[in-house]
Design a binder for these strands. Structure first.
Ligand SMILES: [Mn+2]
Ligand SMILES: [Mn+2]
Ligand SMILES: [Mn+2]
Ligand SMILES: [Mn+2]
Lengths: 217, 217
DNA sequence: TTATATTTTTAGACGCATCTAATTATTCTC
DNA sequence: GAGAATAATTAGATGCGTCTAAAAATATAA
């Protein structure tokens, strides 16, 4: 049985490994704690057989660690889906609550919730929800910032942790599945002119397009 | 902001005060901890303005403490209702999970859940669910053990903490709202012969009838 | 390659929640 | 009302999770 702190560290490691290496600093940054605290936790999780860790050499997940992390991601995204689909929360309001709900210990609860929601494949932010077996539906998505003029895409996923971004997208009428045509890319500030399905084109900042995952339209 | 341990102590005090006094021993018993631990928590909760407490003199709730305790009871019972009504849990399976869910911190969540469930008045065990304003619908119920031969009653509520009782009732086909006619009371062992709406009469032990709340049929 | 900067780990501390053991206060009994 | 029984509190210890400050290892750069 893991504590909440242990679970959050494990999840952070898992998330960071998706994009490269999980450095002590990056973990601390992600969890808003100090690197010294992270080191202690890494040692403890290694002790519990969830991480492969050697001082100064970095960290990877064991099979068991990965399974636990994926189970947490599953719980987090199912709860987010519940909050948005069933309770009517906005997609910018659910992350913090799910951050708590994911730690509820009940074997039955997750699976019952999954069935109740109709076994959804994606959460409100477009992120895939791992199945009971830990499998995720893979898609070929890329960052909008990687697209060039002339490309037509659909928004596939967004970074949930920045609720400011989510509200900004709301104000532009953008959501998961929204169509976008890339008209122009400005080298000067890294921003992009895009045209939605209906309505006038508008500009998206470098920061915004960095946080948008898209797939071919 | 209260910790989980503080919240559980506050709730225990509230529950015990319903039946009389909240002694340090009774609180420890209820929470499966030691009296010395309870004393420390009582001091802390007093410090926070939630309890009136003087060493050796016992404890009562302040207005603020009572409000917080009732809010917790509300959360607990709403979650139990969700688990049974929406997710299909048995009424004997929900207490422990609700014991965790009641500590989720989100002002919006409780009220959204309440609306989602249709603002239920009672939980799966027949206990009243306090409203957003803290008000509960009062009923005149009494313990089945207080009834005499010839009385006709309906089961109003049961003790949720003893899941063995709940399963026993299931096996007798009894649930909230079930009709019962008291046929006989045995002084020898404190048991009772009762007849359900349909089917043959049967015997209920002293222990069982002690934990059943009934109202006039 | 040596000096400097960055990253990571270790050492030592603190608050929280819990325990056991010892002490003190209250209640009961004769 | 004195002594015994019970209840409650205090004292002292432990594990967890976190912090700051210091030390050590690694990476970068002149
Ligand atoms: Mn979390
Ligand atoms: Mn999400
Ligand atoms: Mn609880
Ligand atoms: Mn209940």
């Amino acid at each position: 049985m893991l504590t909440r702190a242990e679970e959050d560290h494990l999840k952070a490691v898992h998330r960071l490994l998706e994009d490269g290496i999980a450095s002590t600093n990056a973990i601390a940054e992600r969890l808003s704690t100090k690197t010294s605290s992270v080191t202690v936790m890494l040692q403890k999780l290694t002790e519990k057989g969830l991480l492969n860790y050697q001082p100064y050499k970095g960290v990877t997940l064991t099979r068991e660690g990965r399974e636990q992390a994926v189970a947490l991601v599953r719980k987090h995204r199912l709860w987010e889906t519940f909050l948005v689909e069933q309770l009517g929360f906005g997609w910018d309001e659910v992350h913090e609550v799910a951050e708590q709900l994911e730690h509820i210990q009940s074997p039955k609860l997750v699976d019952k919730l999954d069935d109740f929601l109709g076994n959804p494949a994606f959460d409100p932010h477009g992120d895939p929800i791992p199945g009971k077996d830990g499998k995720v539906r893979l898609r070929q998505t890329k960052r909008l910032e990687m697209c060039g003029p002339g490309e037509s895409v659909r928004i596939a996923a967004v970074s949930e942790t920045t609720d400011g971004l989510l509200r900004l997208l709301d104000s532009r009428g953008l959501r998961i599945g929204s169509y976008l045509h890339v008209q122009d890319v400005h080298v000067f500030d890294g921003s992009m002119d895009v045209k939605p399905k209906t309505g006038a084109p508008f500009n998206l900042s470098k920061t915004v397009i960095h946080h948008l995952q898209v797939e071919p339209a």
